[in-house]
């Protein structure tokens, strides 16, 4: 059986909020190392991969592999009943037809209990090869969100160009064009505000802004975001959590 207690329900709330507009039904795969999820959007353009390590739970118990097939809209409805600071306990049997969720406030004088029906989801699983990326950029997640939102007003796609000292986001559309250039810099007082670039070789790739704007819903999970780019390889957008991550992969636009 699964029993997993999360100190802050907000972690799961933010994870679900980050991915629910990209995928609707998905398996939460539970085993002794933690809870993981991999799902592609309907058009097979984007993929989300989420991992919550057992270290993020206390206690965590999962005797055997359990796949929890969950409709994320349903889960969102139930999680609305939880405060971010509530303690959240997830429970499921070995071959479950429902997932039990208990929310307790920090004073421990209120507890709410919900059961959510599970579904059988036959999901494709993709093998994601280890990639040595040409460029890795770490920037504030709020900055990335602002850039994607602003440029999406002008165009459907953005070109990301990483060079040794800066990363440039540019787009052009019917009403005109726009670009944002971020120079590499280190903010010693507020490290989360820094922009860093690790470059093997300069790279320039074009991506759909609709998906990037969607990924940015994960900004609440982490003050920084990591973009990994290589020519003709899906973009990796990673939000790190204390005991896990949410990663998005986005297929590039190709050809002229």
């Amino acid at each position: 059986m699964l029993e997993a207690r999360l100190e802050q329900a907000g972690v799961l709330k933010k994870v679900v909020e980050a991915i629910k507009d990209l995928v609707q039904d998905c398996n939460f795969d539970c085993n002794d190392s933690g809870i993981a999820l991999q799902a592609m959007d309907n058009s097979h353009v984007a993929l989300v991969s989420m991992s919550l390590s057992h270290e993020g739970f206390s206690p965590y118990r999962c005797d055997r592999n359990i796949a929890l097939g969950i409709n994320l809209n349903s889960l969102t409805k139930v999680l609305r009943a939880a405060q971010n600071e509530d303690i959240l306990t997830l429970k499921a049997a070995d071959s479950p037809d429902s997932l039990n969720l208990v929310f307790e406030n920090t004073e421990r004088d209120r507890s709410s209990e919900y059961d959510i029906k599970l579904m059988d989801i036959d999901q494709e699983h993709l093998g994601i090869p280890d990639t040595d990326y040409s460029a890795t950029v770490v920037l504030p997640s709020a900055e990335f969100q602002r850039i994607c939102r602003d440029l999406s007003q002008l165009s459907e796609s953005v070109t990301i160009e990483a060079s040794k000292s800066s990363v440039k986001f540019s787009c052009s559309g019917d009403i005109g064009n726009g670009s944002v250039n971020l120079r590499q810099h280190q903010d010693l007082e507020k490290p989360d505000q820094s922009t860093s670039i690790e470059l093997v070789e300069p790279v320039s790739l074009t991506f759909s802004l609709k998906y990037l704007v969607n990924f940015c819903k994960a900004s609440a999970l982490s003050p920084t975001v990591k973009l990994s780019l290589s020519t003709d390889v899906p973009l990796l957008v990673e939000y790190k959590m204390e005991a896990g991550y949410v990663r998005f992969y986005l297929a590039p636009k190709i050809g002229d």
């Binding site: 592609m40 093998g127 297929a251 190709i254 050809g255």
Partner: peptide, 14 residues
């Protein structure tokens, strides 16, 4: 104009 690629051509189903 550029075509949107799909992940199937980059990642293999396992």
């Amino acid at each position: 104009s550029q075509q949107q690629g799909r992940l199937d051509s980059f990642f293999q189903t396992i």
